[in-house]
Computed example of a mutant assay.
Amino acid sequence: MIMKQLTLYALIGGSNVIIDFTILNILWKITGIYKGCINILFKAISFIAYSINGYHWNKKYTFKGEGSYLKFTSVMGIAAMLNAIILSIMSNKNILGISQVLWANISALTASISTGIGSFFINKFYIFKK
Results as ranks from 00 to 15, higher is better:
residue 9 Y to W: 02
residue 7 T to M: 09
residue 18 I to S: 14
residue 3 M to D: 05
residue 45 I to L: 10
residue 32 G to E: 10
residue 31 T to E: 00
residue 112 S to C: 10
residue 38 I to G: 09
residue 103 W to F: 11
residue 119 S to Q: 09
residue 3 M to G: 07
residue 119 S to F: 03
residue 104 A to V: 08
residue 25 N to R: 00
residue 10 A to K: 00
residue 36 G to S: 13
residue 33 I to E: 01
residue 12 I to E: 01
residue 11 L to E: 07
residue 24 L to V: 07
residue 50 Y to G: 14
residue 82 L to N: 10
residue 89 I to N: 03
residue 29 K to F: 09
residue 11 L to F: 10
residue 107 S to V: 05
residue 17 V to L: 13
residue 56 H to M: 14
residue 106 I to R: 01
residue 15 S to N: 09
residue 85 I to M: 08
residue 8 L to M: 11
residue 12 I to N: 01
residue 98 I to L: 06
residue 68 S to D: 13
residue 91 S to L: 15
residue 8 L to W: 05
residue 50 Y to V: 09
residue 25 N to L: 07
residue 11 L to S: 05
residue 31 T to S: 10
residue 80 A to S: 15
residue 129 K to I: 15
residue 116 G to V: 08
residue 39 N to G: 12
residue 124 K to E: 06
residue 121 F to E: 00
residue 48 I to G: 11
residue 24 L to P: 10
residue 127 I to V: 15
residue 5 Q to Y: 12
residue 30 I to D: 02
residue 44 A to S: 13
residue 42 F to G: 05
residue 74 S to R: 03
residue 38 I to H: 05
residue 98 I to F: 07
residue 91 S to P: 11
residue 64 K to P: 09
residue 113 I to C: 05
residue 30 I to M: 11
residue 86 I to K: 05
residue 116 G to Q: 08
residue 83 N to K: 03
residue 127 I to Y: 02
residue 95 I to M: 15
residue 19 I to V: 05
residue 5 Q to D: 15
residue 17 V to S: 11
residue 29 K to C: 04
residue 86 I to Q: 10
residue 120 F to P: 07
residue 125 F to R: 12
residue 106 I to L: 14
residue 71 K to I: 05
residue 114 S to I: 01
residue 32 G to D: 13
residue 54 G to D: 05
residue 23 I to S: 08
residue 34 Y to T: 09
residue 70 L to P: 11
residue 48 I to R: 00
